Amino acid sequence: MPDPLPRPEPFIQQTSPAALEDLRVRLRATRWPDAPEEAGWSLGTDLAYLRELVDYWAESFDWPAQEAALASLPRFRVPVGGLGIHFVHARAVAPVGPALPVILSHGWPDSFWRYSKVVPLLTDPGAHGADPADAFDVIVPDMPGFGYSDRPVGPPLDSIAVAGLWAELMTVLGYETFGAAGGDVGSHVSRYLGLDHPDRVVAVHRTDGGLPVFRGDPADLSPEERSWIEGTAAWSATEGAYAAIHRTKPQTAAFGLNDSPAGLAAWIVEKLQAWSDCDGDIERSYTKDEILTNVTLYWLTETIGSSMRMYRANSAIPPEQLARRVEVPSGFSLFSGDVVRPPRAWLERSTNMVSLTEPERGGHFAAFEEPELFAEELRAFFRPYRAAATG
């Protein structure tokens, strides 16, 4: 007889007062660097803004209240592939007909936090002005080495391996077929779910197409594709230093980031500001409490090093894997404030693209920045594939 499937156990995290006091002590003892006058965000994280944020973090931020809000989501842990995986599993509320199971994969620098606002919009659309027939069962795992999932003790896992874990997780939860969606690293994981499990994944939705990998004759590319590849290379040269460190020497950076909460905040906040649709003002997209909830999750779980190491693993994926074409129906919502947005011709070249929309608001973290808009994008895309999914 086959081994019985593992049983998910409810998960509630309660941080000790000692851990929070240690955090406040470290914040108050921050040794600040200098910065040129009027540098702002041009050299990286703005010194004046970070000092303001750190002061709020030390003196006013209420982590227990944020922790309690996150605990309102139905959260679990279960062993999958030898690792304890933390995940949200929220079932549809009063669906009209079978609910569509969908697994949402996050990226860096975030965790299940990315989708915390959209879970109720997707599970209970009728309560939010949408069609109850569009209800989902929503599964949001923390990737290995992120959030409350285990950190691999051996080599870091790449997106292909994580996609395999997610397929196993969906089996544990009783879903034979399902939809997959994601952004950033989660876009790659969703892609490999479609590539390696096409008999189970009914459709794949992504908010980006990833960075371009093309080893053919440039003459075969459209002018728009060539322009995009050149623009992406220019973006990587000016904005990609973080990724180069993650791919090559993540452990060196991890020492400082894991020891200094102000340094950790600087590393993460700069990306929230640069990649969001905020016109340079980060608090147009996030409140201080929202920013610090994300950063505090990294601090308390000590996962900045392990999360960065996934870049190292992904950089070793063979070119033949990167070049595979996704034949599962694929859709893209390219939010206007995101970075390196690919042209239609590239998406059609690399996937069986059946849908492309360009929402006018939202950036790289669209599910958190514009949850209602993101939820409507998912409802519309997956609507034709509901009948093909079973739970």
Rank of each mutant, 00 (worst) to 15 (best):
P74T: 12
G84P: 06
P198T: 07
E358C: 03
R383T: 10
R344C: 05
H205L: 00
D142S: 15
T238P: 01
R325F: 00
P132C: 05
P95L: 12
K288G: 04
P329W: 06
R383F: 07
G40N: 03
P8S: 03
L70H: 13
S116N: 13
Y298T: 10
D150A: 12
R215T: 13
L100M: 15
A35R: 12
T232I: 01
L221E: 08
A161S: 14
V185W: 15
T123H: 06
Y311M: 06
L169D: 00
L104M: 14
P384I: 01
P319V: 15
P342K: 02
P74Y: 11
P155E: 14
P384H: 03
T293F: 03
A345P: 00
L378K: 09
T15F: 07
E370G: 00
L356Y: 01
P144I: 05
R28Y: 01
E239V: 09
Y148D: 12
H205C: 05
P198E: 13
E239Q: 15
D134F: 00
P155T: 11
V119T: 04
D259S: 14
A19Q: 15
G194L: 01
E59D: 15
S16V: 07
D277W: 08
L20Y: 12
T123A: 10
E360G: 05
L257A: 14
L195I: 13
P343T: 08
E327C: 01
A94S: 14
E37P: 14
E320L: 06
G256L: 13
A68D: 09
P36Y: 07
V138T: 02
G363N: 05
K288A: 13
R309V: 10
G147R: 03
F365M: 02
D137C: 07
R312H: 11
E377T: 12
F255Y: 15
V138N: 04
R226H: 07
G84E: 15
V185L: 15
A316L: 13
N258D: 15
T390W: 05
D137I: 07
D220H: 12
F368I: 02
